[in-house]
């Protein structure tokens, strides 16, 4: 059992209920314990930074200070929500990078008898922990009901893979972690080109037409890729694409119905849990009908890996560039 500090974030209690339920259900099989920081506060999402800088950072830093106090054998702080993850790492980074600014933030924290030493915590997103710490081998070994036949579009949204505060943990535009995780669950992972495009963020609130075109692009691309549902790691993305899909359809006179669920939900499903136990049914675009597509037929023995044999195919087509094997780093 490895233990981590845990910052749930506000949406886990409301719009992200199914994220919370499914996360709580899968921690035991994954062999991790999440220790929630006591009395944490909202990270301010993308709103506070837009109004003023220092108060916004101080608000976030209060959580870091609380987490630092709770550090006991672990200094990894896990956040399941993208905006929270980003804000926490961004604050840690800003305080470490610019010592004078760090001192200012601490000056403010001192008013609440708190203090945070920059870089004393390592802030990581839940997906990163599942893939890198728990490992796909463990995940695979827990699968009792492989999601065979279910076509999933991995969708990360923008804020988790993107800026490299705290050291970028994956490729900012074409990360493959979620794809590999879903494949480990036995699902069919479709090539989803927009996996790190923005869901519109707070635009659903302040500039709906902008947001609607973003949502439409995402949903449309998932449909074209043949996905049964989208799988995300971010409550904001889930909320925008799920809850605003109806309004978006009304806006464009379209009739898209693309369910979107959290990666912890499909993990729970593959671990043999009942759909409702891991929050299926809470989404406005119901994902349950698609679950019927999971086939229980045993898969034929995997073909032995094809050896790349030199040979000249018939026809005029020119060869494609040779790509590095998956995971091979080219930089």
């Amino acid at each position: 059992m490895s233990e981590y500090l845990y910052y749930p974030g506000c949406s886990m209690d409301s719009s992200g209920r199914s994220y919370r339920d499914s996360l709580e259900a899968v921690t035991a099989p994954l062999g991790i314990t999440l220790r929630e920081i006591d009395d944490w506060n909202c990270c301010g999402a993308t709103e506070y930074l837009g109004l003023s800088r220092l108060p916004a950072y101080a608000l976030i830093a209060r959580n870091l200070a609380l987490a630092e106090q709770a550090r006991n054998g672990t200094n990894t702080l896990v956040a399941p929500c993208s905006a929270c993850f980003l804000n926490l790492s961004k604050t840690n980074h800003a305080m470490a990078e610019d010592a004078a600014f760090g001192a200012q933030v601490n000056d403010a924290l001192a008013a609440g008898d708190l203090h945070y030493d920059p870089d004393s915590l390592r802030i990581r997103h839940l997906l990163d922990v599942v893939v890198r710490e728990v490992g796909l081998e463990t995940v695979r070994s827990r699968v009792t009901r492989p999601l065979r036949g279910l076509k999933l579009a991995p969708y990360l949204g923008c804020m988790v893979p993107r800026p490299d505060y705290d050291g970028r943990w994956s490729d900012p535009e074409h990360p493959s972690e979620l794809d590999r995780l879903l494949a480990a669950l036995g699902a069919e992972v479709v090539d989803y080109p927009l996996k790190t495009e923005c869901c519109g963020g707070h635009m659903t609130q302040i500039g709906p037409s902008t947001a609607f075109s973003m949502i439409r692009r995402l949903v449309d691309a998932a449909e074209r890729a043949g996905a049964d549902m989208m799988v995300t790691i971010c409550p904001m993305c889930q909320m925008n694409i799920d809850a605003f899909q109806g309004e978006m359809n009304a806006h464009f006179h379209t009739s898209h119905r693309m369910p979107i669920v959290f990666f912890t939900q499909v993990m729970g499903l593959a671990f043999g849990m009942a759909p409702e136990a891991v929050g299926f049914g809470r989404e406005l675009v119901d994902a349950r009908p698609a679950l019927a597509r999971i086939s229980d037929e045993p898969v034929p023995e995997a073909e032995p890996a094809r050896v790349r044999r030199p040979g000249r195919p018939k026809g005029p087509a020119l060869p494609m560039p040779q790509m590095p094997e998956a995971g091979e780093v080219t930089r």
Binding site: D39, S52, P55, A58, R62, D107, G112, L114
Partner: peptide, 19 residues
């Protein structure tokens, strides 16, 4: 409401003043 609301308020007030 979080328990540490008072502390948080003081932190934010101080941050605003500093800014």
């Amino acid at each position: 409401r979080i328990r540490g609301m008072r502390g948080l308020k003081r932190i934010l007030a101080r941050a605003k003043a500093l800014e």
